[in-house]
């Protein structure tokens, strides 16, 4: 015999759903901008900085809204964000190291 569970289904929160689709649209448009930039602007550090900036914009929307981190407790937000400082250190260290290897070999 299957047990019947009485569940109260709430109606769709239209405002919330609309906001989610809006964020999806932003993510799509930012990706399109990256595409256009890749084929119109000359390659160089300025273009790379633009790509990285737009990537961080996309990452912000995914983490804050899709993963809901923006609406969590402050302590949880910081305990996730602060440790990523170590990543920044590793980027600086290894890119400098790579440059030194290039200088030594060529």
């Amino acid at each position: 015999m299957e047990q019947v569970v009485a569940v109260e289904v709430k109606p769709v929160d239209k405002k919330k759903v609309k906001k989610l689709w809006k964020i999806a649209l932003i993510l799509g448009i930012v990706t399109l901008i990256e595409f256009v930039m890749a084929f119109t602007l000359p390659r160089g550090y300025l273009l790379y900085a633009g790509f990285i900036g737009l990537t961080i914009v996309k990452a912000f929307y995914i983490v804050s809204e899709f993963m809901h981190l923006k609406h969590e407790a402050k302590a949880l937000i910081w305990s996730i964000l602060l440790p990523t400082i170590f990543v920044i250190w590793l980027i600086i260290a290894l890119l400098a190291e790579g440059g030194s290897i290039l200088n030594a070999l060529y």
């Binding site: 990543v87 980027i91 290894l94 890119l95 190291e97 790579g98 440059g99 290897i101 290039l102 070999l105």
Partner: peptide, 12 residues
């Protein structure tokens, strides 16, 4: 990904 950057930087 940083390893990618590191190796890319060590090539011309």
């Amino acid at each position: 990904l940083i390893t990618y950057g590191f190796l890319r930087y060590s090539y011309p």
